[in-house]
C-alpha cells in the first residue's frame, strides 16, 4: 500500500537557521498522525512544507505517490514541477490553521462555498448545498449566514474545518487547531476532529493536546531541534521508560491533566 504522505530527507533552512534537519516520515492512509514537540522543534514548519506553504530546501515529499512541488531525479537533483501539477497534487490536501484564517468578508456559508464556486466551478445552488452539508457535519447549520466576526473561536475553527472538507481532500493537515482557543472551546473542535478520524480521514495534526494525541493518534512523531527523535504508536512512544527528551517535554504537560491518559 502506498503511504498517503511520504517524506524523505526533508531539510528546511531559513537563511542560516536549519529548522528541519533531514526528516523521514510515512503517513499511513486513513490514520491519524500527531506531530508533537517543544515550540521551535520544527513541527509547524514540517506541516507547512507538507502543504507546500513552505518550500523545503532539500528532500522530497510524495502525496499519494505523486511528488509535491519538486521532482527528484535519481542523481538527487531537484526540478520544480509546472504549476498545474503542483496545483493538482495540492488539491488533495486540506489545511486548518491555528488562527482559523476565515475570510472576513464572507459568511460562514460563503467561506465554505467560495472555493467550490471559484475553483471547482460549481453552480451557485450546488455549491451552497454542498457547503451547507459540510456545515451540518460540524454542527453549524444554524450559523450559516453569520460572519466570522459574529462567531466564537471554536465555531470559527469548525467553519474552517468545513471549508477545507468541502473540497474533499484526501489528507487533512491541522496546524495547532486549538492553540488560540479558550480552554472551554477546545472540546468542540477536538470532537469534530475525533469524528473525522473515526470516518477514516488521513490526518496530520500538530498539537499541544497530548491527551488528544494519545487517545486519537495512531502514530506519534516527536520532533526536537528539527529532527524526528521518536516515531510509533502512542503505546510505543509514551511507554516507560521513555526517551529522556520526551520525558522532559511531557513533564510540562502532565500537570494539564494529560497524565491519566498516558
Amino acid at each position: 500500500m502506498i503511504a498517503a504522505v511520504s517524506v524523505t530527507g526533508l531539510v528546511k533552512r531559513f537563511g542560516q537557521a536549519e529548522v528541519l534537519r533531514g526528516i523521514d516520515l510515512e503517513v499511513p492512509a486513513g490514520r491519524v498522525t500527531c506531530l508533537i514537540g517543544p515550540s521551535g522543534s520544527g513541527k509547524s514548519t514540517l506541516l507547512r512544507c507538507l502543504a507546500f506553504l513552505e518550500e523545503a530546501t532539500e528532500g522530497a515529499i510524495l502525496i499519494g505517490g505523486e511528488p509535491l512541488g519538486f521532482a527528484v531525479t535519481p542523481d538527487g537533483r531537484r526540478t520544480r514541477l509546472p504549476s498545474g501539477r503542483i496545483r493538482a497534487v495540492r488539491s488533495q490536501i486540506g489545511m486548518v490553521f491555528q488562527h482559523f484564517n476565515l475570510w472576513p468578508h464572507m459568511t460562514a456559508l460563503g467561506n465554505v462555498s467560495e472555493a467550490l464556486k471559484t475553483v471547482r466551478r460549481l453552480g451557485r445552488s450546488e455549491a451552497d448545498d454542498r457547503a451547507m452539508a459540510q456545515l451540518r457535519k460540524v454542527g453549524l447549520q444554524n450559523r450559516a449566514n453569520l460572519y466570522p466576526s459574529q462567531l466564537s473561536g471554536g465555531q470559527q475553527q469548525r467553519v474552517a474545518i468545513a471549508r477545507a472538507l468541502a473540497l474533499e481532500p484526501k489528507i487533512m493537515l491541522f496546524d495547532e487547531p486549538t492553540s488560540s482557543l479558550d480552554p472551554e472551546l477546545t472540546g468542540e473542535v477536538l470532537n469534530v476532529m475525533r469524528a473525522l478520524a473515526a470516518d477514516g480521514m488521513t490526518m496530520v495534526v500538530v498539537s499541544h493536546e497530548i491527551g488528544f494525541a494519545a487517545s486519537v493518534g495512531h502514530q506519534i512523531a516527536f520532533l526536537d531541534h528539527g529532527q524526528l527523535l521518536l516515531r510509533g504508536t502512542p503505546q510505543e512512544v509514551f511507554r516507560k521508560p521513555r526517551h529522556a527528551r520526551l520525558d522532559q517535554f511531557l513533564d510540562t504537560y502532565l500537570d494539564r491533566g494529560a497524565a491519566m491518559l498516558l
Binding site: 506553504l53 486540506g94 489545511m95 490553521f97 488562527h99 484564517n101 475570510w103 468578508h105 475553483v119 471549508r163
Partner: peptide
C-alpha cells in the same frame, strides 16, 4: 491583508488573479 487569510485561499486552490479579486481586493478596500 493578513497573510493567513491569503494562505487559506492558496490552500483552497485559488489562482493568483482569483485570490487578488476575491480575497485581497475586498479586504484591502474595506
Amino acid at each position: 491583508v493578513p497573510r493567513g487569510v491569503v494562505e487559506a485561499a492558496d490552500m483552497a486552490g485559488f489562482r493568483p488573479f482569483q485570490l487578488f479579486w476575491r480575497i485581497r481586493v475586498p479586504i484591502a478596500f474595506k
